[in-house]
C-alpha cells in the first residue's frame, strides 16, 4: 500500500547519497504536495549499479509552488513544478501549520 496519497503535504529529503539518484538538488528539502500515486517502478538507483531494480518502489507525482523553490519567483503565485519522486525520497511534512 502506498504510504502517501493525493493532497498529502510532503518534504523532500535533504540527502546526497553517493550512488546514482534522480532526485534533483533543487527540490531537496523543499515542501510540496502529492498530486497522485502513479505506480511502483523499478528502482533506478540500484539499476544504475548493476542491480535488477527490484523490489519496485512506489512513485508519486509531487507538485511544488515555484515560490517555494525560488524566493525570487514573482511571475505568478500559482505556477508550479511537477516531478515524480520515489517513496523513499519524501516524508510527511510536519512543519508549520500542525
Amino acid at each position: 500500500m502506498p504510504a502517501f496519497s493525493a493532497g498529502d503535504r510532503v518534504r523532500v529529503r535533504d540527502e546526497t547519497p553517493r550512488h546514482h539518484h534522480r532526485t534533483p538538488q533543487y527540490v531537496k528539502a523543499r515542501r510540496g504536495r502529492v498530486v497522485e500515486f502513479i505506480g511502483a517502478y523499478l528502482n533506478s538507483e540500484t539499476r544504475a549499479h548493476g542491480g535488477d531494480g527490484l523490489p519496485r518502489v512506489p512513485m508519486y507525482r509531487v507538485e511544488f509552488d515555484m515560490t517555494e523553490l525560488w524566493s525570487e519567483y514573482t511571475a505568478s503565485a500559482t505556477d508550479k513544478v511537477w516531478i515524480d519522486l520515489y517513496e523513499h525520497w519524501i516524508e510527511h511534512d510536519r512543519g508549520t501549520g500542525d
Binding site: 533506478s44 515555484m66 511571475a75 505568478s76 505556477d79 508550479k80 513544478v81 511537477w82 516531478i83
Partner: peptide
C-alpha cells in the same frame, strides 16, 4: 492567471 506547470521528466 494561466497556471504554468513545468513537468520535470525522469527515467521512468
Amino acid at each position: 492567471d494561466v497556471e504554468v506547470r513545468v513537468v520535470d521528466s525522469n527515467s521512468e
